[in-house]
Design a protein around this nucleic acid. Sequence first.
DNA 1: TGGGTCACGGTTTTT
DNA 2: CCGTGACCCA
Length: 680
Amino acid sequence: MLDELNAAQKEAAIHIDGPMLILAGAGSGKTKTLTTRLAYLIGEVGIDPINTLTLTFTNKAANEMRQRALNLIGTKNLNTMPLLCTFHKFGLLFLKLHINKLNRNNNFNIIDTDDKKALLKKIMKELDIDLPLSFVASEISTYKNILLDPQEIKQKAEIDEYKKVAKIYENYQNNLLENNLVDFDDLLALPYQILSQDEKLRIQTSQKYQYIMVDEYQDTNELQFKLLELLASEHQNICVVGDDDQSIYGWRGANIKNILDFNKHYPNAKVVKLQINYRSTQEILDAANKLIEHNRNRLGKKLISHKGNGDKIEIFHSLDESFEANTIAHKIKELLNRGTAPNEIAVLYRINALSRSLEEGFNKANLAYKLVGGIRFYERAEIKDIISYLRVISNKNDDFSLLRIINKPKRGIGPSSVQKLITLAKEKNLSLFNTLKLEETQALLSKKAYTQIQDFIAKIELLEKEKEDLNTLIELFNEHIPLKEYYANMNDGFERILNIDEFYGYFKERTLQEKLSLEQFLSDIALESDQDNLTQNAINIMSIHASKGLEFEHVFIIGLEEEFFPLLGDGCDIEEERRLAYVAFTRAKNNLYLSYVDSRFYRGKRQKVQKSRFLEESGVLKGSLKQDKKASFKRGDLVKHKIFGIGRVQEVNKSGKNYKLKINFGGMKKEILSSFVEPV
DNA sequence: TGGGTCACGGTTTTT
DNA sequence: CCGTGACCCA
């Protein structure tokens, strides 16, 4: 199995004990190296698969690696299976076994980002606090990532704003506990908490996972780093793979320092660099290399193509976004006529808003495309409704889920009725479901609402009886809960009903094939996103983030303009923007096309835009820097003129489209147009 | 309670 | 420009 690898890949694959950092540039065979190492450990060295742990960020990556590793080893020879999963799935599995150490029951539910936001919103309303929701949500996430509980945050908070957040955090945590919910951060934070408190369990767990591998290490956050530290504490057999130049998730907590400082944390770490790129032509890699060299915060490496030079990068300059879309559509048609498969073409952009003009242009040109990303299947309201029903059927005391569906379809229970029910439930110290069964509720609800609620209770209990036979359960569900009718009346009802049917089909298939219980199915899908979105015969259009890990023969990047890409504004990190461009460039196998416009229509306004600095930094457009600097001379700047030499700017005046500078060249004063001098 | 209207605000996304 | 959510009235 090692014959397939190059020297550096092989060196990494056969390293057995001790920490190792594999710096794997884009397209350098990262997955191949990692899977071969796993196969080597199991198939050649003789490590029991059960003693390995391989962690990834996405289910897709986990599945792909599992398949490839098992192919190398041959499943026939295995008695146990290696654990290969996402960080969060690992957290889930761990908590199912050990959350009782925190005095919690392991029938907890996982809430997603939307649920979290909805809960926070409710809490903020109750507390009468008005802060931006996204700010509160990310603050709380940060707190969990640095492992501070509400009490500690309360003590630390000095500014009023943060005291308020601390209050919300406290309420939020209580709410999660009351409903036995965990959020995505908890899936990492709680295992860490348990492992750091329980010495014996820590040793036992670390000894179980003798060989740990981590994919996309540049995207790990603080908590993942610390968790890994505990897991590897007994043996330090931790092998991480990543590319510091492809760290593009800083805004959601990824800490690039984890990869930059890996040697400091593990001084005896072996470092292997994979720099031979099997994906792209040298022409593309030169641009990517040149661009990324403008970053300071990096370990430094240079990609060398295995494929040779290839075609020049093409630049499209258009008047506005509709011309841009036309130009690209035209070029794509040319490619298709030459026999290029549509799924070998991708159009990438920095922000999703740019997809609209593209879609319009493609529709006009009759080009079939597939928009990757957007609203995810499990985040659609209709799907979350069914899941909430299933959660209530699985656990009738799940108030959180019950509240979502109590009035879906409409049963005459509005916000004020709900409030009354909650008050009563608190008074009686009962779950909402049990409260609904009380005599007293009759007085709280209208006659119609009360009858419908009794009907609702009866149906849930009826469905509950079928928990063992999930095929029947979902059939009965469809029959008794008229969700389809509820959604049919909406303007996008048709699509929603299709989604509902798709879910039913998926539910039957998964539970039957994998013999899952209702509980297992529910916790599994909480950590699943849409699987592989790419289709066979359409052009893919998507954000650059969504393109990570993918590759295409032809890649178009649109919107290469200042303020669109790089995206400027507060909280922006120019180096991360550059890494994003690096990721985008390196998706291309053979041809890269870069596009910019003079003006763009955005948020209801047309605005003039400047071409992106990345075009010049990557060396694909020469001299744009000089032009852009035209306006940026100010009094006191030193400048250089071809004839007069070096002088100092005394005055800047506008002269039509240009700037006229009054410059003092060693006592000789001249008025010169700004384009004739260069900054010194 | 539920349908309708108006003001507002708006990166990137996986789990 | 377009989607979401607050607010108002039947």
